[in-house]
Design a protein around this nucleic acid. Structure first.
Length: 280
DNA sequence: TCGGCTGATGGAATGGGGTT
DNA sequence: AACCCCATTCCATCAGCCGA
């Protein structure tokens, strides 16, 4: 299992909040030196944008998408007569972890060709948003989610990795491998969903004391290990129920619950509906 | 990174409602 | 009546927060 799978498995815990979204056009004399506290995506519509990060210079052309992570200090100018781009500022968090994406080198320039469809959806949503059409904010958020999912997918498949380096304020932020320590735990949970999993055994796998493991896990992922296990089990329970191939008793046993009652209890707590009423 | 405290959770037993 | 499923209750254990 790849560490990026957490975003898929914990998709219900992912929160994206749009802070601002607009379109700007800058003349050749434009020079901007900034460092934001949230994420920022630029969709270059016209011209070329030259971006300098940590003394290194990059060029984003028409059609490209630029992703800035928080704490990336950049200087931007245009090498063409003028440039025009749409920007969107947003926060991205998993559970209560607002900087989970810092674990990955995502900040940089994505060539338009590799993200074509997702960018098109985003631009369509932006046009709706600009005209204040009905549900346009939901459209915008949805299309941004798709765009980010695509960036994560490209990153996971090694088709993309960002080259912007953030200004490291704490040692933790400099460590892109922060999740690596608990990666074996993800694998273990994934492969042992059919049995009851104790935090103690997970801590052992991570090579930490039980108490510290819980703290570390929550700091790294934004959710507690217990919540993580429950989330995965409930995802699978939902899929198994939809398949209509198994009884509640069978599913309970497939997910490591000692009896169907405990499973029902956990299921209802999570979905607010008992498993028997979940699929009609 | 650890230990103590406390609320949360699991497991077992029991009961009730619905269905066959 | 028998069976199934879920709710409730009680008690023991565990997870996770907080302070050091």
């Amino acid at each position: 299992m790849k560490s990026l799978d957490i975003f898929n498995n914990l998709s219900e815990q992912v929160m994206i909040r749009i802070n601002s979204c607009s379109e700007v056009k800058h003349p050749n004399s434009w020079l901007e030196r900034r460092q934001y506290k949230d994420y920022d995506v630029w969709c270059i519509q016209e011209g070329q944008v030259q971006i300098t990060v940590q003394e290194e210079t990059f060029l984003a052309s028409e059609g490209d998408v630029v992703l800035f992570s928080p704490d990336v200090a950049y200087t931007a100018t245009t090498t063409s007569k003028y440039c025009r781009f749409i920007f969107i500022h947003f926060d991205f968090s998993l559970g209560n972890h607002s900087r989970i994406l810092d674990n990955f080198k995502l900040s940089g320039i994505l060539k338009g060709a590799i993200i074509k469809n997702e960018k098109r959806l985003f631009l369509e949503a932006y046009e709706k948003y600009k005209r204040s059409e009905a549900m346009s904010q939901l459209h915008l958020k949805g299309s941004l989610t798709i765009l980010i999912a695509k960036i994560l997918e490209l990153y996971g498949d090694n088709y993309y990795h960002g080259e912007f380096i953030p200004v490291t304020t704490t040692p933790k932020l400099a460590n892109y491998n922060y999740l690596d320590k608990i990666l074996p735990v993800f694998d273990y949970v994934e492969n042992h969903l059919h049995q009851s999993i104790s935090i103690r055994e997970l801590a052992e796998i991570a090579g930490m004391s039980e108490k510290y493991f819980i703290t570390y896990f929550k700091q790294s992922l934004g959710v507690t290990p217990g919540n993580y296990i429950t989330q995965l089990k409930m995802n699978r329970a939902r899929d198994l129920l939809y398949s209509k191939l198994y009884s509640i008793q069978e599913i309970a046993s497939m997910l490591g619950y000692p009896d169907p009652y405990s499973f029902s209890k956990a299921f209802k707590k999570y979905y607010q509906v008992p498993p028997s009423k979940f699929v009609w």
